[in-house]
Design a protein around this nucleic acid. Structure first.
Length: 113
DNA sequence: CATCTGACGACCG
DNA sequence: GCGGTCGCCAGAT
């Protein structure tokens, strides 16, 4: 399966912002397919401009095993995302793909929540 | 075709 | 807050 849309969305994530698998799944209409999204990320071609580290679990919780999680934390911090231990403040850095998704019809509501 | 597993999410105890 | 279970989709065996 071509996870192009997933990768595309991930690439759309602005710097200093994060999103969750669930959000991505919903944005792509993959209801309950959070796992599928996770799978896509796991199979994501590393080194192709895909900021996988901006993709986290629900509630802004880091999932991946430690080695990757640590790296992810570091990368996020570098991008300006404040991490609360293994937690990310979704209320502050949570990016909504569905709302920010290509504002075709004017600006509409570019407000989070 | 059946079964298990997985970088998930939500629910329950 | 933590751990276990079920449901979801996709891929591998």
């Amino acid at each position: 399966m071509s996870w192009a849309p997933v990768y595309r969305l991930v690439k759309r994530i602005p710097r200093g912002r994060v999103t969750t698998y669930g959000e991505l799944a919903k944005a792509l209409k993959l209801r309950g397919g959070a796992r599928a999204v996770g799978y896509a990320m796991a199979a994501c071609p590393n080194g192709q401009g895909i900021p996988w580290h901006r993709v986290i679990g629900a509630g802004g919780r880091l999932l991946m095993p430690e080695p990757q999680a640590l790296k992810q934390r570091k990368l996020l911090e570098t991008e300006g995302v404040a991490l609360d231990g293994a937690r990310v403040d979704m209320d502050a850095y949570g990016w909504s793909p569905v709302k920010t998704k290509k504002p075709k019809t004017k600006g509409k509501r570019a407000k989070v929540r």
